[in-house]
């Protein structure tokens, strides 16, 4: 029996045609996407994660479609696979902040209960920053090198500021499916449909900080504040969580990522390096305005409590 026939039989489809062989198929119940899992443990974690989030009734999610036998995954000759609905329309966050906020708060709440993974909080040290610069080829374009070295100083300062903020104990950090961007929010039948990434689970708030940063860039400071107020209204996250988010936003991930990319681009491609620096600059500015808006929001919360 071919792969397609096997799938149709297992999931009870009467009609099924490949749109992208092995990846996407059209059925009488809509377009479905196949996800193959090389790591069974990871697959099991995601099954558990999505079921837990789904049980909270926050919004629609890309949960694992059950087979005709009620299983959430299917084993075939190539290994384990899961099947998911495909939704392509992007969710519009404007004036619907509460829907997305419910998902963010709900994911954090589930994450605080998700134990038993080897996930560790991503760590950045000053040495990582220095090493990233050290690795650049010695014949790197002098202008590029000059900018990188000037930025390194401020990147170290950013890291220093992050380190002055109180850190939560490792065991108290949530373990979540990493946020990858605003595009995770899709819309179907007028409702939010959240597409989880399926990546290695992440401990802590690094990707959530990135998500909020992107949100801030898209919605502006006002929009961000509305969104944060909505998240806060679910009373899942406390000040110590918010400070963790702030810590992550302060860590200059974009610097190290750019230095790595410049190294990979090679010294003979300064134009590419200039473009990478421009990208870093934009992201740096996004981080800067987010950190400012977010910290002012936390300050505002503190004032309310004090009064």
């Amino acid at each position: 029996m071919g792969e397609l026939e096997h799938l149709k039989a297992a999931y009870g489809f009467t009609k099924g045609d490949w749109i992208v062989p092995g990846e996407k198929l059209n059925t009488e119940r809509g377009i479905k996407v196949v996800r193959r899992w090389a790591n069974t443990q990871l697959m099991n974690w995601h099954i558990q994660w999505r079921e837990s989030v789904d049980n909270r009734g926050l919004c629609l999610i890309n949960r694992m479609i059950r087979t005709a036998d009620g299983d959430m995954a299917l084993l075939d000759t190539k290994g384990w696979l899961t099947l998911h609905d495909e939704v392509t329309s992007l969710f519009s966050y404007e004036n619907r902040e509460r829907d997305a906020a419910a998902l963010v708060a709900g994911a954090a709440a589930v994450g605080m209960k998700m134990k038993g993974t080897d996930a560790k909080r991503p760590v950045m040290t000053e040495k990582c920053l220095l090493d990233a610069v050290k690795k650049l080829p010695s014949d790197t374009d002098p202008v590029v090198m000059s900018i990188i070295k000037k930025t390194l100083t401020e990147a170290v300062a950013r890291l220093g500021k992050a380190e002055t903020l109180p850190a939560m104990a490792e065991e108290d950090l949530p373990v979540m499916d990493p946020f990858t961007g605003l595009a995770q929010g899709r819309e179907v039948y007028g409702q939010l449909f959240w597409t989880f990434s399926g990546r290695e689970p992440e401990k802590g708030f690094r990707s959530m900080a990135g998500f909020l940063k992107e949100y801030s860039g898209a919605a502006g400071k006002k929009g961000l504040i509305v969104f944060l107020d909505e998240i806060d209204s679910f009373e899942v996250l406390s000040e110590e969580h918010y400070l963790e988010i702030l810590r992550e936003a302060l860590v200059p991930w974009e610097f190290i990522r750019t230095a790595d990319k410049i190294e990979k681009a090679g010294a003979k491609n300064p134009e590419k390096a200039y473009l990478l620096l421009e990208e870093m600059y934009k992201e740096w500015e996004q981080s800067r305005s987010f950190v400012l808006a977010f910290s002012e929001w936390v300050d505002g919360k503190r004032e309310k409590v004090a009064n």
């Binding site: 996407k24 996407v33 899992w37 990871l42 995770q184 597409t195 990434s197 992107e214």
Partner: peptide
């Protein structure tokens, strides 16, 4: 503008990826 995490990675529902 996607701006964080590894942007080159694709979202699960859009295509099958190894884990």
């Amino acid at each position: 503008s996607p701006s964080y995490e590894q942007q080159e990675e694709q979202q699960e529902p859009l295509s099958a990826v190894s884990g």
